[in-house]
Structures are given as C-alpha cells and as structure tokens.
Amino acid sequence: MKRGREIVGIVGKRKPDSVCKTSQRFDRMVNKKNKVKGNKDIGLSVTSRNKEVNLAQSETNQAMTNEQLIEQLTSANPDAVVKQGSQYPEITVAHDKLHAFMQNIKSDSSLAFDYLVCETGVDYPEFIQVVYHLESTSHRHFMVVKANTENRETATLDTVSDIWPTAEFHECEIYDLLGIRFNNHPNLRRYFLDDTWGHPLRKDFHDDIHVVER
C-alpha cells in the first residue's frame, strides 16, 4: 500500500518562547528539517501562503459586476430568463437545457463557476424548483441558477453531479425530502428517511402520526 508518509526528522530542542505561534513554531521546524535533510518535497512550508492570498485578491479584481454577468448570460442564453434578484443575478433555465448550460458556465473561463455552494429544492404548486447557488473561486462572483421540473408528479431533472461532485449528495437529500428523481445520478438513495415516508418537504405532505399541526 502506498503511504505518503515520510520519517520525520529531528525536532530537536527549541527555546521556550512565550508568544510562539503554532505556525511560526512549525515553520521553524520545517525549515530546520529541510536544512538538515535537504528535503524539499515535504511541502509543508507555509511561506507560499501569503503569495496565494495575494493571488486570490488580485484575481478578485477581475470579478464581473452583476450587470456584466446578466448581460453575458442573456446574450449567451437568449431563451433563458435572466434577472437581478434581491441580491444576486438569477437565471431560470429550461429543464432540458440544464445540463448543457451548467457544463458551459463551469468551463467558460470568464464565468468559471467551479464551486457549487448550495443546492435546494423548493416545492411550488405547479412544479418543483431546484435552486443552485454558484460561486467562482477565481473571479469571486456569485450567481443563482434555477430549474423547474415539468410537473410535480413525475418530477425529474438532470443531475449535475458529474460537473460538481458535491451535487451528488445534495441531490440525494433533495430526492429524499422532495422526491425529485435525478437522471444519470450514480447512487440515488434516501439519506434521512426510510421508504415508508413520503417526501416531507412537499407542501401536500401529511403525516398524522409524526407531525403535530398547531
């Protein structure tokens, strides 16, 4: 079995230092060790951290404003509904175009929505809506994508778990609580409840035994 573990060198005796922070202690430890063993590939050095933060901040500057984002999304998806929501740009995508659209906004380098923050199902009278909160870790802009199922009875939607792996688990949760079946999902199972339950977050869910209504 491959183990990425190396024998750690001598830590040695250090002077007691009352305001010695963990990181500093550790930096010193690593530096010392690197010197002793000439071992560069431990990679635990913390000096590159600040660089990375600066990088993240400089990238932030390229973030699109909400207006630019809306403009670009509207021109690229003429049949989708794009509007400025109460906080973030919101786009409603047709359910059959969802997967292609999602793939596009992740791979497009000017959008690069690579972080799926949250996936929510909301039950409305005619359809069930799935809301995706997306953020780009390089540009730091934020967007909300919505997709409606065709109807409530046979609610299906394409999975996005091949685009963002975290969606796999959020989709299981939505399936459990709202009963949306996700096409092509690798392992759609109920997380919280067993099969004797309905889908409790639907508005027409009634349970006389477990739910006391006031």
Binding site: I7, V8, G9, I10, V11, G12, K13
Partner: peptide, 17 residues
C-alpha cells in the same frame, strides 16, 4: 541512514513525549 533516522525518531518521540 534509515537506521539512524529510526533511532533519531525514537529519541525525538521520547523527547516530545
């Protein structure tokens, strides 16, 4: 060398303990 490392690790382990 690995043998010395091994011994050194034992000593440093005891020391940190």
């Amino acid at each position: 060398k690995s043998f010395f490392n091994y011994i050194a690790e034992i000593f440093s382990g005891v020391w940190t303990l």
